[in-house]
Simulated assay, not measured.
Amino acid sequence: MPGRLQRKAIDSLAGGDLADFKVGVDNVIFSVDTEQNRLLVLLVMRHDDPFLGYWSLPGTLVRHGESLEDAAYRVLSEKIRVENLYLEQLYTFGGPNRDPREAENSFGVRYLSVSHFALVRFAEAELIADGVSGIAWYPLSQVPTLAFDHNSILDYGYQRLRNKLEYSPIAFEVLPQTFTLGDLYQLYGTVLGPDFADYSNFRARLLKLGFLRDTGQKTSRGAGRPASLYCFDADAFEPCKDKPMVFI
């Protein structure tokens, strides 16, 4: 006898034809403006229907012979120039009617979005206009209503970013090569909120992990005492990269 899930699948197949799909990628591209303590996301203005005139996440349909990752990098290269980039696949959004074009065609075509999550260094990122207006960094707190279901994709990406900060060294992807512990604390606070941890406890935990190396150099900012400059020691982290960890 078929189980409950099997019966549900059989009933579903019996109730209609198999769907035909078009596959796209949408990129949630984050950066952190450390000077103004702002978490930013890259948005582009749509110049075609559907959602003409709406802001959206940078995206594209996947071409013949192109992998999902290649499509994600392609749309990134069309919108932004940056040397240091962290990119990973985020989630697949494929609910019915997520794209108005589904109701407009008579072929039953569904539109899937395989979203990707990217993090870039703000100071190094150069936006590419290429004669097309409407590309900008938006503070996360000021993002408008986006095209399609891109607000939901953005929310999912933001949660992934928060989680990655807690168990991975992703923060060092957007910091300069050398930084103070205050810079690092400020970055975490910008993404997670100002009350995520006490500075003393944060400092002690990060140094105990053994992945931050004191460069022996100091920097002076304002009238305060010079602060030590650190760098992330990738070699020290390598033996532990596959172990469960908590960074904060």
Rank of each mutant, 00 (worst) to 15 (best):
S115I: 01
A103L: 14
P100D: 13
T215W: 07
K218A: 12
S200F: 10
E124C: 01
N151R: 08
F237E: 00
A223H: 13
V114R: 00
A171R: 01
T145I: 12
H116Q: 05
S133Q: 15
L212W: 01
Y156H: 15
F122Q: 07
D198W: 10
R121F: 04
Y158Q: 14
D130W: 11
A197P: 02
G108I: 07
E126L: 11
L229D: 04
C231T: 15
L212F: 06
S152Q: 14
A204D: 13
L112N: 02
H150S: 07
D149M: 07
K218Q: 15
S106Y: 13
D130A: 15
D155P: 06
P96S: 10
G134Q: 04
D233R: 02
N105I: 09
Y230A: 00
Q142K: 14
Y111M: 05
R162M: 10
R101W: 10
D149G: 06
T145S: 14
A118C: 05
V132P: 05
D149F: 09
L112S: 03
V132W: 08
N201C: 10
N163K: 14
S115T: 06
L192T: 10
F237C: 03
S141Y: 08
D242I: 10
D233W: 00
S228V: 11
G134H: 04
R213A: 08
L207P: 03
E238F: 13
Y111S: 01
P176F: 01
C231Y: 09
F172W: 05
S106G: 12
D130I: 10
D235M: 09
R101Q: 14
C240A: 13
L175N: 02
G182E: 14
R101F: 11
A129N: 13
P96Q: 07
Y185L: 03
V120F: 02
A129T: 15
P96A: 10
R160V: 14
F232H: 06
A136H: 10
G157T: 08
D195I: 09
K208D: 12
E173R: 08
H150W: 00
V109E: 07
S133Y: 14
A171Y: 01
A227G: 11
S168W: 09
Y158I: 11
P96F: 09
Y199W: 06
T190S: 10
V143W: 05
N97F: 15
V191C: 08
A227W: 01
A147M: 00
Y111I: 04
F179V: 05
R98H: 12
A103V: 12
C240N: 12
A103H: 11
G216V: 06
N105P: 08
D195T: 14
R221V: 15
N151S: 09
Y138W: 13
F117L: 03
E126F: 10
E102G: 09
G95Q: 14
Q159R: 15
G193H: 08
P169C: 09
F232G: 01
A129C: 12
T178C: 02
Q186F: 00
S152A: 15
A234W: 13
Y199G: 04
D195A: 15
R213G: 02
Q142E: 15
Q177K: 13
V143I: 07
W137I: 01
